[in-house]
Design a binder for these strands. Structure first.
Lengths: 136, 136
DNA sequence: GTTTTTGCAAAATGTTTGCATTGTA
DNA sequence: TACAATGCAAACATTTTGCAAAAAC
């Protein structure tokens, strides 16, 4: 049986463009707001379904930093992230990592490792300058 | 003004022990179930308040892997994790990382980095042997 | 006696689901 | 005409909150 077609509908395109066009790693709510500007009748459920489809097909990345809402990333090659615990700002990072990191983790855990990702937590330039207290 | 006292009440102790006594990185629901065995009248809210207090005071770690519920870790020194995308099993890892990793991330991002943590995603031995399809 | 903590219930949040309708190959 | 996708609303899971009663210092 042939797998279903997955059309790139206007709504899905708008969701994808909202993510790729923003370097803010937007939340679903922010994406919904932006898509709604072009498609006033769009539903929240449609946005979530599009996000699910796009991430399952590897066109976007869904990030979870434990601060409530998922964040979405249009960059899908392997990279890392820093998140500001003051304001939630999220930036991509490309630190040089040991080439055999995943292999060693796999050996140590017995897991078959498919993916790895570093989360850096801290304060962005604005928040550290503004003297936002860092969390305990 | 002196900071509040934070008593180690029986409920809080039970929460802490449920986490430290388990190497499963339990969810709040699992912790609640275990605490309830000793304290049948304990409330979900009490468990959440205890989890919040314990993690704010650095006695436990709250982990978020984007699979719904938070997981809690009694090990609080810096380390990393692998999670099984098949069954949710979560294990601690200690890969050797470049000593200047956080410094370089800080320089590259302009962030003041307080903490970093690697998430390895893959299949645990049981799931990979059982042939659980890995996610796309 | 004052302050902290609990238990309970309600509410908030983010996300998922069911389904009739609409759109499209 | 068949299949996929949308819009809408209800349901869901997890977590947070408000507050009176209970417990601890």
């Amino acid at each position: 049986m042939p797998r279903p077609a997955h059309r790139l509908t206007p709504q899905r395109r708008a969701v994808l463009e909202a993510i790729q066009g923003s370097h803010n790693h937007p939340t679903a709510a922010q994406i919904y707001a932006q898509v709604k500007a072009q498609h006033p009748r769009v539903a929240f459920g449609t946005v979530y379904k599009a996000l699910d489809l796009l991430s399952r097909t590897g066109q976007i990345l869904q990030l979870e930093f434990g601060d409530g809402a998922s964040r979405y990333d249009g960059r899908v090659d392997r990279h890392d992230h820093a998140i500001c615990t003051g304001c939630g700002r999220l930036v991509d990072l490309d630190p040089q990592l040991p080439k055999d990191l995943a292999v060693r983790a796999s050996r140590a855990s017995g897991f078959v490792i498919n993916q790895h990702m570093i989360q850096f937590f801290g304060l962005c330039p604005d928040c550290s300058q503004a003297g936002v207290a860092r969390p305990a």
